[in-house]
C-alpha cells in the first residue's frame, strides 16, 4: 500500500496522500534505520557470544570436528598449569599497569591543568603521541628499543646507571625482565590516553567550587582534595575500570615484543595469548571459548569489586 501511495503521490500531488505517505515512512523509519545494524549485531555480535558458551562444552579439532565434553574444559582449566601462568602474568601486568599508569597520568593532568601553563596543546600532543602509534607498532618499536647493545633503552640506562645496567642487559631474553619490559612499554603507550580523560575532567570541574573553597580559606592542597578529586571521581573510576579491563585483554604487546611467542619460560604468556594458542594454533576452539568465558567472568568480577571499593554504586544514589 505504501508503494502505491508513493507512486501515485508523484503523479497526482494530492496533499492528503502525500501526508499519508509521510506518516507511514515516519513510522517505519526507526525500524529501517536500526535493522541493518541490528542484523549484523545479532549475527556477528550477540550470536557468537551465546555460541561461545555452547562451544565451551565441546572439544574441537579446528572448526569442523567437535565432541561434546560437558564441563570438562572448565575442569581442565582449574588444573592447567599453563593457564595458571597466563592468569598470573596477566594479573601482575594489570596490577602494575594500573598502579603506575593512573597516578602518572593524574600527575601529568594536574600539571597541565594549571591555568598559567603555556604550550598546553604541545605538551598534550607529546604525551598523547605514543597512543597514536598503536599497540602493534609500539610493540614493534620496543622490540628494537629493548635490544641489547644498540637499543635506546639500554643506551640511556647504561649512561645513567652504568653499574646497574650493562649495555647487554637482556630485557626480552631474561624471564625475570620480561614483565618489567611489558609494563614499561604499556606505561609509555597508555599514560597519555588516561591523561587526556583526566585533564578533560579536571577542566570540567566547576570553577565556582574553587572560589567557594577559597572563600572558606582552603589552600591549594585542600582545594585539590576537597574539590578536584571529588569532581573527577566518575572519570577516574571510568579510567580505572577501562585500563584494568584493557590490561586483562593484553595480547599484541607481548606477542609481538616476544617474537610471536610467550617469551622465555612463558614469562610473557597472557590469557588472550593462551586463548589464541589453544584455539587457533592447536585448533581447539572449544577450549579457547572456555578460556574466553573465564576471562570474561574474571573481568566482570574485578570490575564489580572495583566499582564497590570506589563507591561508584553509592555515588549514583546521592
Amino acid at each position: 500500500m505504501t508503494t502505491t501511495t508513493l507512486e501515485h503521490s508523484a503523479v497526482e500531488p494530492s496533499a492528503q496522500r502525500a501526508s499519508q505517505w509521510h506518516r507511514v515512512q515516519h513510522r517505519l523509519a526507526p525500524y529501517l534505520f536500526v535493522s541493518p545494524f541490528l542484523i549484523l549485531f545479532v549475527l556477528f555480535g550477540a550470536w557468537p557470544i551465546i555460541k561461545s558458551l555452547v562451544l565451551s562444552t565441546y572439544t574441537t579439532n579446528g572448526p569442523k570436528d567437535a565432541v561434546y565434553v560437558g564441563a570438562k574444559n572448565f575442569q581442565f582449566l582449574l588444573s592447567d598449569a599453563d593457564f595458571h601462568v597466563a592468569v598470573k602474568n596477566t594479573a601482575v601486568f594489570a596490577f602494575w599497569s594500573v598502579v603506575l599508569q593512573l597516578p602518572t597520568a593524574l600527575g601529568l593532568a594536574i600539571l597541565l591543568s594549571q591555568p598559567w601553563v603555556r604550550g598546553r596543546a604541545l605538551f598534550r600532543l607529546a604525551f598523547f603521541a605514543p597512543y597514536l602509534v598503536g599497540s602493534v607498532f609500539v610493540a614493534v618499536l620496543f622490540n628494537v628499543l629493548f635490544q641489547p647493545q644498540y637499543g635506546l633503552i639500554n643506551t640511556v640506562l647504561h649512561f645513567l646507571l652504568p653499574s646497574h645496567f650493562p649495555l647487554d642487559y637482556k630485557w626480552l631474553e631474561d624471564a625475570s625482565h620480561v614483565m618489567p619490559a611489558l609494563v614499561l612499554a604499556g606505561l609509555w603507550l597508555y599514560v597519555g590516553l588516561h591523561m587526556i580523560y583526566l585533564l578533560a575532567a579536571i577542566q570540567a570541574v566547576d570553577k565556582d567550587l574553587y572560589e567557594a573553597a577559597q572563600v572558606d580559606g582552603a589552600n591549594t592542597r585542600q582545594q585539590f582534595w576537597a574539590v578536584t578529586l571529588p569532581g573527577i571521581r566518575p572519570v577516574a573510576i571510568f579510567v580505572l575500570l577501562t585500563s584494568t579491563i584493557g590490561s586483562f585483554q593484553l595480547f599484541d604487546l607481548p606477542y609481538i615484543l616476544l617474537n610471536n611467542g610467550p617469551g622465555p619460560n612463558q614469562s610473557g604468556l597472557t590469557i588472550v595469548m593462551y586463548l589464541y594458542n589453544t584455539g587457533f594454533v592447536t585448533g581447539d576452539l572449544g577450549y579457547a571459548s572456555a578460556v574466553g568465558w573465564t576471562l570474561a567472568l574474571g573481568v566482570l568480577l574485578i570490575s564489580l569489586i572495583q566499582l564497590r571499593v570506589t563507591g561508584a554504586f553509592k555515588g549514583e544514589n546521592e
Binding site: 550470536w47 557468537p48 557470544i49 561461545s52 584455539g279 574466553g292 576471562l295 570474561a296
Partner: peptide, 16 residues
C-alpha cells in the same frame, strides 16, 4: 554485550 570482552567471540566467529 559491551561488558563481554571481544576475545570471547573469536572462536565462534572463526567457525562462522
Amino acid at each position: 554485550t559491551v561488558m563481554i570482552p571481544t576475545q570471547v567471540t573469536m572462536a565462534p566467529l572463526y567457525e562462522l
